[in-house]
């Protein structure tokens, strides 16, 4: 057990990062090997200019405005989940460095920084997690059950597990960010540092599950992070 934990602390993170970026690059490379579409497969209405179409695709990608119009409930599930994820990711910057500039600008001390992070982090995590349960429940509902395959459950349960282990640290522990900074700086510089004890036992589970996610990410449906905008441009070609 200790060996496995050691691997997830000090060895697998490198593999996960390499597979994540390498895998996404490989995915794009595989797409580019395929022949181009033999014609324009536009959907109308679409903006006239090329720039207009790109902007429209990006706006649609970040707001899902097309989905909002036809299925508000699914839009809420998908959009709020992604928005929460974005906030959570921004918050995780504090695991590696800190918003020193922001704290200085606001003239906030340690106490205020901590209170703000606790409140904002909990809200962001909630925005991320509750829609995940909705999306999971939806997998068994009505016609969606015909469309549900093992991958869908795997990805949803993985994300939920990551969220819950994160909540454990957020709500039940007081994590010293300096410990995290030291640990990750150690990983980045190959001068390994002791594990962040203040984060408690959930840390290794959280950290390991994220690595599983990163390794899986490029090879399944999650590659829509890149593919969705490419597909949108086909519909606006």
């Amino acid at each position: 057990m200790a060996t496995i934990a050691f691997l997830f602390y000090y060895v697998f993170p490198y593999i996960a990062v390499a597979v994540f970026f390498g895998g996404l690059a490989y995915r794009v490379y595989r797409w580019w090997q395929k022949k181009l579409a033999p014609a324009r497969f536009s959907l109308f209405p679409r903006p006239q200019s090329r720039l207009g179409r790109l902007l429209d695709a990006l706006v649609d990608m970040f707001t899902l405005k097309g989905l909002l119009r036809v299925n508000p409930l699914l839009w809420a599930g998908g959009f709020i989940m992604h928005l929460g994820l974005l906030f959570v990711l921004v918050g995780h910057v504090r695991a590696f460095t800190d918003f020193y500039f922001l704290w200085k600008l606001l003239n906030w001390g340690k106490e205020q920084q901590h209170t703000f992070s606790a409140v904002a982090g909990t809200i962001a995590g909630t925005l991320f997690t509750i829609p995940l349960f909705y999306l999971l429940a939806r997998r068994w509902s009505g016609a969606v059950k015909w469309l549900s395959v093992p991958e869908d459950f795997f990805v949803l349960l993985l994300l939920i597990s990551i969220a819950l282990t994160g909540f454990h640290m957020r709500l039940l522990r007081t994590v010293e960010v300096e410990e995290l900074h030291r640990f990750f700086a150690g990983l980045a510089s190959f001068r390994w540092q002791p594990v962040p004890e203040s984060a408690g036992p959930a840390f290794i589970w959280h950290f390991a599950l994220v690595q599983v996610l990163m390794v899986y990410f490029p090879f399944g449906k999650l590659s829509h992070i890149i593919g969705s905008v490419l597909s949108k441009m086909v519909a606006r070609s």
């Binding site: 797409w31 395929k34 022949k35 579409a37 497969f41 469309l147 449906k221 590659s223 829509h224």
Partner: peptide, 12 residues
């Protein structure tokens, strides 16, 4: 290429 995107990214 588009068909490959579609097969890979459909989240069902």
């Amino acid at each position: 290429r588009p068909l490959q995107y579609y097969q890979d990214i459909c989240v069902r």
